[in-house]
Design a protein around this nucleic acid. Structure first.
Length: 423
RNA sequence: GGAGAGGUGGCCGAGUGGUCGAAGGCGCACGCCUGGAAAGCGUGUAUCCGCCUAAAGCGGAUCAAGGGUUCGAAUCCCUUUCUCUCCGCCA
């Protein structure tokens, strides 16, 4: 949710900025402005009515105490009237507030000035490209073929046991997966992130706090009997740890990392994009989350991008970093960098990380604030990124390192896997 | 799942119808004291909204949440929810 103050101050600028997202906010903003004005009017009226009622009640109390009960009788009537009126005003105000709130949640985060305009992926701005592209023969295989050949992943078994999109990792495939998790967590620890193991299900308040609800309702698995949601990413439970808190300024930034299984319904996905490990309903991910001071949150964002780039370098994977254009930007994000690795068997770029600064979007919803040295409490900024999502990293590792003798395991992982070749 | 107890400020804890946003203590901050520290003394110490862009000031709301009784509710009633204890079940 954006700060309504921005709309009060300069609604034109707000509407203009939204155009980067191709989001026409003019009607919405106009109605918000109206409602906001009405709300404040209503509150003033309500407050003064309540003030009268309070004063009257106090007077009655005094009269009772001094034994002048009969004098209190007319005041009682007056008080009853005031009560009736304030009740009505309260209802009006609640209605307006509720509507205003609802409209506000329909506004996406304001994009950062550096966000390029545009509609689709095509308009994303590649700002960095690193690593050596693997030179493979024409006969190079996609990871699902390699997985079958070396018995690393049993897609059919997963389909039988659960359904499509729930792969079964096996043997060295399972070990490699575990090795990657250990590697990512250990690196995050070295970089100052505190490791967490969060719940894999969250309640509706948490899903609302990070913005999964109400916007992306259909994307999460919902356990109806207990009204809980399977997490689509550990961002949700981790960030919500800080919901409804006021931190001390010197506690910022808070750096958290967590490994978790992630569940996504991916309703509507189909086709070649979903082959193999490319898109799953259940996958593993190590996430990094930071709660940052608003004055330095973009430095934090850069730091996170550099950190993830470092991981990819260590894994010897060629990658590129793209700044998402307005049309591709998530609802809650002010600025997002996507990290993609080149997967040589499929000859395509695979997104393995998405690193975003949500500024106050989540903080506003979850009332995550801090106490500055001077002045009023301020909303913190929240950021997060994958570091990294496992399946596509796995896909790229398998594809890029295939040789006639088997699949080579990058040196950095040897101490976690205990083997250096998959044969 | 069954039985009982209870949710008050950063924490502990008092408060059973009026002047209670709430005693007292702890913690924390600042000041005094000290060679320095501890102790001691003093002062301050919740959040949100509005008047007002801000400070001061004023008004409103908040004692788990929602509703009710009453002129007036932290206090009485109802519902929901959470926590704790005992029993049952169980990784």
């Amino acid at each position: 949710m954006i700060d309504i103050q921005k709309i009060r101050e300069d609604s034109k600028a707000v509407i203009e900025r939204y155009q980067v997202r191709n989001f026409n906010a003019s009607d919405l903003v106009r109605r918000i402005k109206e409602l906001d004005a009405r709300r404040r009017e209503a509150q003033q009226e309500l407050d003064s009515t309540l003030a009268d009622a309070n004063a009257t009640a106090r007077k009655i109390g005094e009269l009772f105490k001094s034994g002048k009960r009969d004098e209190a009788e007319p005041l009682k009537e007056q008080s009853a009237d005031l009560k009736k009126r304030s009740k009505k005003l309260q209802e009006e105000m609640d209605a307006v507030t509720h509507e205003l709130q609802e409209l506000m949640t329909n506004l996406p985060m304001l994009p950062h000035p550096s966000v390029p305009a545009g509609n689709t992926e095509e308009d994303n701005e590649v700002i960095r490209e690193e690593g050596e592209m693997p030179q493979l023969p024409e006969s190079a295989k996609a990871h699902w073929e390699l997985a079958a050949r070396y018995d690393l992943i049993d897609f059919a078994a997963g389909t039988k046991v659960t359904g499509a999109g729930f792969p079964v990792y096996k043997g060295k495939g399972a070990v490699l997966q575990r090795a990657l998790i250990s590697f990512f967590l250990e690196e995050a620890g070295k970089a100052g992130y505190t490791e967490y193991q969060p719940p894999l299900m969250v309640n509706a308040e948490s899903a609302y706090g990070t913005g999964q609800l109400p916007d992306k309702d259909g994307q999460m698995y919902h356990v109806a009997s207990d009204d809980l949601y399977l997490i689509p990413t550990s961002e949700v439970p981790i960030t919500n740890i800080f919901r409804d808190t006021i931190m001390e300024e010197n506690e910022l930034p808070v750096k958290c990392t967590a490994y978790s299984v992630c569940f996504r319904r991916e309703a509507g996905s189909y086709g070649k994009d979903v082959r193999g490990l490319n898109r799953l309903h259940q996958f593993d991910k190590v996430e990094i989350v930071q709660v940052a001071h608003p004055d330095t949150s973009y430095e934090v964002l850069d730091e996170m991008v550099d950190y993830v780039a470092g991981l990819l370098e260590k894994l010897e994977l060629p990658f590129r970093v793209a700044r998402l254009c307005g049309g591709d930007l998530g609802f809650a994000s002010a600025l997002t960098y996507d990290m993609e690795v080149y997967s040589a068997g499929q000859k395509r770029w695979l997104e393995v990380s998405s690193i975003s600064n949500f500024e106050t979007y989540q903080a506003q919803r979850m009332k995550l604030r801090f106490r500055p040295a001077e002045g009023k409490n301020r909303l913190a900024h929240t950021l997060n990124g994958s570091a990294l999502a496992l399946p596509r990293v796995m896909a790229a590792l398998l594809e890029n390192n295939q040789t006639a003798d088997g699949i080579r395991v990058p040196a950095i992982l040897h101490k976690y896997t205990g083997f250096d070749m998959i044969q």
